[in-house]
Amino acid sequence: MNLILIATIAALVIPMYEAAQDNDIWQKMLAFSSIATKASIVILIVSVLRDDWMIGVVGVIILSVGNAALMLLAQILKRLNEL
């Protein structure tokens, strides 16, 4: 199980590198969504490993809030490019 966790953390670094070096804002948004999802998955794995419900609930909420923030930000950025 620890191995899966380490692999997920390693996968978390890939979109981070992508966000750091790409100049297109939509690529950065993609990286953001990827990282937000992976972070909440890692939280869920940790909560299962530790048998801790409290952390698990936080993971679920972050999973949904991360996507909501992404939607709001994407809407504003889209309007920005239209003007």
């Binding site: 990282i35 972070a39 972050i62 930000l73």
Partner: peptide, 12 residues
């Protein structure tokens, strides 16, 4: 956008 990434990572 990267501040959003920082938010996700720090929440983690």
């Amino acid at each position: 956008v990267i501040r959003g990434i920082l938010g996700a990572v720090s929440a983690l």
